[in-house]
Each structure stands twice: as C-alpha cells, then as structure tokens.
Design a protein around this nucleic acid. Structure first.
Length: 321
DNA sequence: AAGCTAAACCGCCAAG
DNA sequence: AGCTTGGCGGTTTAGC
C-alpha cells in the first residue's frame, strides 16, 4: 500500500530533532520538483501543550483520531522513553498494524513500539546506546544494534537521530522509486544513499580536510558504473593499496567496498527501470553488472522483486497518479 | 542447482 | 610512542 497520509505523535518530552525528522521527511511539499506530497500532521494526546525535551512546548490542533487514519504512524524519541506511554497511544499503534498501516520509530521511540507489543518476534533497532536496554526490556524482540534502520513487515525502526532520515527516504523510495527519493534527498542536502544494513558506527564520518575523504571519489565511481569496477581497480584509481583502501572505506562508510558497489549498481538499475525502456540486458551493462543474470540476482535480494516486475509495477503506479 | 575458481574480506604484523 | 600503511595468508563470499 502506498503511503499517502502520515501522522507523527508528539508525546511529552519529545525530542525536537527526531520530531523534525518526521516533519522534514513527510511534512514538506516537494511536488513542485516532482517529489511526493503527503497529508502530514503532528498529533498530540490531548489539548494541553506538549513539553519538549528542551523545555519549550509545542501544540497542535490534531489528536490521535488523526493517527488512526494515517497510512504511517511515526513515534519520535522522547527524553525518557522507558517511561510509560499513554495507553491510548499504544492502542493507536496496535490498531494501525491491524488495519494494514505502517508504524515507524526514530531512535529510542522503539521503546514505545515495544510497549505496544509490536516488536515481539520482529527484527528492529534503536540507537546503539539503548540497544541493550531495549533487548532486555523486550526479550522477544530481535534487536540489531548495528544497522541504520530495519523494516520487518509493517514495523520500521531506525537508529539514532539522523538514521531516521535514512528510513524516511527508504519508505519514500519503496513507494515512489529511486528517482523521487533522490529528489527528496537532494532537497534535504543529504549525503548519498545509505542502505539500512549499514553500520551505526562510522569511525571517521568527517575528516579534517575534504581532500582526505573518500566521498568525492565515491561520487565519481557512482557516476561511472558502466566501467565495470572491481575493488582492486577502485583502489588503484584512488591511488591506494588494496588493504588501505578497504580499511579507509570501512572506517568512513561502515560498509565494504564491494557491498557498496553492488548497492550502487542496484540503485542505478532502479532509476533506469523507472524511466527508461532499455532491455534488462542493457540496464545490467550500464549499471555495471556483468550480466542480466547478475542484475536479477542482486536486484531480487535488495529490492525483493525482479527487474521486469519492478518496472511494471512502477509504471502502473506512475500512470495511476 | 551445484560446484569450481577468483575475488573479497579480515586479522595479524612488520615497516615507515 | 602512537598511528598509518600495506603485504601476507586463511577464510568467506561472489561470479560463472
């Protein structure tokens, strides 16, 4: 089901940044540039203003009934998420899942999902600092402390703060494709796509000098995938030994060179399938896969469908809109 | 579908 | 002394 309406629930002690992530991801109309427009609202439990984690208050005209109609309900982190949460909110979350909507948490908002019983038997994550506590509090949850975000069925959880934006983009990508997700990320001035499985720990996200970062080099590679790179050839182009390249890569991005490369290839293939009419064979070549079979294999494991099926459903979606 | 080969990864360590 | 580099070899993973 395509997400069209979104509600973020602001609980007492809400972290403004995390709530802001929801607003930024779904509350900004980017239709002028071909981005999506969501029916977005921040809802509160009752009529009284909600204190934020930083001592100021927010208020909204929208209440929980609005969340009951949303296709996606978001729980941002609170100052102390292990505190209890109003039962009415937990009911809203459980009802959302029952009626086929999605539920998403940012950072320690996962505790609220756990309190609603929604994490039992599911893969989930939270900020690495809270992961052990979450796992201890909800033993039936499969907490993975080392990913940026996880979606298990209708339940999507994300790691600390900024990873919430990565999850927003993931959900946008799932409904509207890579091209639209890129429009949104560009407008947010976000770095290149980070996959969900990427490590939370990134040893050196920012280097003192821009020239010491791999980022510009990686952009260059990502823009030139039809050259069928190998890890070794990338290292040569970066004028580093293979060992140093791999190590620096791991430290800066949290992934390995090859995993990154195949992911970039899949992303390129997605855009090509969304807008072009090239046969799968051509898409495979241009995105750097050795063969159409390789494309199908990786596409299936990352996106969950075949390239042709993806193209069909995507085209169907585009014409209906 | 499965098995073989090459590539990638990673810990270890010596050298700068 | 502390930190980065890059080569080696064993093990895992990818590609065909």
């Amino acid at each position: 089901m395509t997400i069209r309406s979104v509600a973020a629930i602001a609980l007492a002690g809400v972290q403004p940044f995390e709530l802001g992530v929801a607003c930024e991801g779904f509350g900004v109309d980017r239709s002028d540039e071909g981005g999506p427009r969501y029916d977005f609202g921040v809802v509160t439990v009752d009529d009284s203003p909600v204190p934020t984690a930083n001592g100021w208050t927010i208020s909204s005209d929208l209440r929980l009934d609005r969340a009951d109609e949303a296709d996606l309900v978001i729980i941002p982190a609170r100052i102390d998420d292990s505190q209890s949460c109003p039962a009415a909110v937990l009911d809203v979350l459980r009802r959302a899942v029952d009626r086929g909507a999605k539920v998403m948490s940012i950072c320690s908002g996962a505790f609220t999902l756990g309190a609603a019983g929604l994490l039992d038997g599911r893969d989930c994550t939270t900020h690495w600092r809270h992961a052990a506590e979450l796992a201890a509090t909800y033993p039936a949850a499969r907490v993975n402390p080392n990913v940026l975000y996880v979606c298990d069925g209708p339940i999507c959880t994300s790691a600390g703060t900024a990873a919430g934006l990565d999850l927003c983009l993931h959900l946008i990508r799932a409904d509207y494709g890579e091209r639209v997700a890129n429009i949104v990320s560009r407008r947010m001035v976000m770095p290149a796509h980070r996959e969900g499985g990427q490590a939370q720990y990134v040893a050196a996200p920012v280097r003192a000098r821009e020239a010491e970062t791999l980022a510009p080099f990686l952009d260059e590679i990502a823009g030139d995938l039809e050259t069928q790179h190998t890890v070794e050839s990338m290292a040569v182009r970066a004028t580093m030994s293979g060992r140093t390249f791999a190590r620096r890569f791991q430290a800066e991005t949290g992934t390995t060179p090859h995993a990154w490369l195949t992911h970039q290839r899949v992303l390129r293939a997605r855009t090509m399938l969304e807008s072009g009419d090239d046969p799968v064979e051509t898409v495979a070549r241009q995105s750097g896969f050795g063969s159409a079979a390789m494309l199908r294999h990786h596409f299936m494991s990352v996106v969950g469908t075949s390239p042709n099926a993806y193209r069909r459903t995507f085209r169907g979606l585009a014409t209906r809109r």
